[in-house]
């Protein structure tokens, strides 16, 4: 299966696949940025004292977590045009993945904020901070250590999930692989090379997340001993 001819072909595919991998990284970065920001709003909304707002955020989270990413992607790409909102496939993928991950991100934020001792927020309001100030200056910086590892894990899953965008023909790695497959009809070789490329992107990232996790635990242990 791996003959010189195949290696020559791989060399032929590689430039195209590398460009597509860059698009995958771009899609990942944009969707991730969206999820980090939108997720914070959803988390704050859910913890809000306004009942209706908290309920809306809860419904949003349950809907997103109860349906496949693929369905959400199709709703945004094929469904929104009926309401006059037409997004290009790349944009639709960024929005769909970003909003999908916003739901899990909001759960991560909520968990992190809940992990910060309640006394911290009480002390902040005792020294005259508003709720927003206490959250920004006191609670969130401490929550950050708890939420960083799961946020990193989300990034790794998001990177892999961008492959789903190929099903609405958004330009990224998997889409490019599909194109090459219909051009050369060598699915085994092309998808294996694609798999290796995803591995090269995702594996170091997940190693980095595990390293971060371990070093955060170590620093917490050091603090406790000090």
């Amino acid at each position: 299966m791996i003959s010189d001819a195949t290696l020559d072909l791989v060399r032929e595919w590689l430039p195209e696949l590398l460009v597509a991998a860059a698009q995958t990284l771009e899609m990942t970065a944009l969707a991730y940025a969206l999820s980090v920001v939108a997720g914070l709003f959803v988390a704050l909304g859910e913890m809000s004292r306004r009942r209706w707002l908290a309920r809306c955020c809860r419904v949003y989270i349950e809907f997103v977590r109860g349906t496949p990413t693929l369905t959400q992607l199709f709703l945004i790409y094929f469904g929104l045009p009926a309401f006059g909102i037409v997004l290009p496939s790349f944009g639709a993928a960024v929005v769909a993945l970003g909003l999908h991950y916003a739901a899990s991100m909001s759960e991560i934020y909520r968990g992190g904020i809940a992990a910060v001792d309640l006394g911290q927020a009480e002390a902040a309001s005792a020294v005259g901070m508003t709720r927003a100030e206490a959250l920004r200056h006191i609670v969130l910086p401490q929550a950050l250590r708890v939420i960083l590892p799961p946020m990193g894990n989300s990034l790794v899953s998001l990177l892999k999930d961008t492959s789903v965008a190929s099903l609405i023909a958004a330009p990224e790695l998997m889409m490019r692989a599909d194109d090459l497959t219909s051009e050369y009809y060598m699915p085994m070789q092309i998808y294996l090379v694609t798999g290796v490329m995803y591995f090269i992107m995702a594996f170091p990232l997940s190693m980095a997340v595990r390293w971060l996790e371990r070093s955060l635990i170590r620093s917490r242990l050091r603090q406790r001993r000090a």
Partner: peptide
């Protein structure tokens, strides 16, 4: 765990069929 499940599905469905 480091490769998208969609890629794995395509290797198994399209890739294996081609061999």
């Amino acid at each position: 765990r480091s490769v998208p499940v969609l890629t794995q599905l395509f290797i198994i469905y399209f890739g294996l069929a081609s061999v």
